[in-house]
């Protein structure tokens, strides 16, 4: 009997606290598979955010550094300065990257830091119970915009890829989704490209992954994934925004 599918060596067996159906687990898996396939596991240093995925260093078999909320790109910059030969990547949620951490996000990209950012966008603050975030869709109901996000009051969701692509320091910017198998495989290819950019010192790379947060969307995991595929992609079109 040959094993044709199993857990990536990147992830350990610590039980993960994520809710049933949360896409974070999928994101970690495909990042781990890419690093494993590229033989980079032992060279990787991971910077975790504050948020649902803030405990990633306890789930992954790499050195892990927990950054303060929003500061992962700055922490990664410091790590990369000391270890330019290592693979340094920051894993961030939308609250971390485009609410409190917008400054660090834009600045690291503008500096062209040779790091990779994996951006899990589930359009909501998950860990704290489903508040509106920087990427909450217009009309999307959250615990801090109960009748749906109203642009007059709450403004508009931010397209991070669209925002970063024009920056000259940003060399590879792409957006994928994790709502079904074909899209997961496409996301994995983009993640691979991003890490290849870093490996070849080509500068800043970021892959945005549209993710489902069933608990805070108050949907079943399957419905939440369908909502990501049908609704989120309208506001956040998939594709490669920069490949220099």
């Amino acid at each position: 009997m040959a094993v044709i599918y199993q857990k990536s060596a990147y992830l350990n067996d610590v039980k993960r606290h994520y809710c049933p159906g949360c896409s974070h687990g999928i994101a970690h898996k495909i990042v781990g598979e890419v690093l494993e396939e590229m033989g980079l596991l032992e060279k990787t240093i991971m910077v975790a955010p504050v948020g649902c995925s803030g405990l990633l260093y306890d789930y992954s078999n790499t050195d892990g550094i927990h950054a303060l909320h929003g500061r992962a790109p700055a922490v990664a910059t410091g790590v990369k300065a000391v270890h330019p030969d290592k693979i340094v990547y920051a894993y961030q949620g939308d609250g971390d990257l485009i609410s409190i951490g917008t400054g660090e996000t834009v600045s690291a990209a503008a500096r062209g830091e040779n790091i990779t950012v994996i951006f899990a966008n589930n359009s909501i603050f998950g860990m704290t119970g489903g508040q509106m975030a920087g990427t909450t869709l217009v009309g999307e109901k959250t615990s801090t915009c109960r009748d749906g996000r109203n642009p007059q009051v709450d403004g508009y969701p931010v397209g991070v890829c669209e925002m970063l692509a024009p920056l000259q320091g940003a060399k590879y910017i792409a957006r994928a989704s994790l709502h079904d198998v074909p899209h997961i495989l496409k996301a994995k290819q983009m993640i691979r490209t991003a890490f290849e950019y870093q490996l070849n010192n080509r500068g800043y790379s970021l892959v945005e992954l549209l993710c489902a947060c069933p608990t805070n969307l108050k949907m079943s995991p399957t419905d939440a994934c369908r909502w990501v595929g049908e609704e989120m992609t309208k506001t956040f079109p998939l594709g490669v925004f920069k490949e220099e």
């Binding site: 040959a2 044709i4 198998v181």
Partner: peptide, 20 residues
């Protein structure tokens, strides 16, 4: 043996073996 169940599983709960 398409592995879709394994690929979409968020919790590494699925291992798939195939008799060659």
């Amino acid at each position: 043996g398409c592995k879709c169940c394994g690929i979409i599983c968020p919790d590494d709960a699925i291992t798939i073996e195939k008799e060659d």
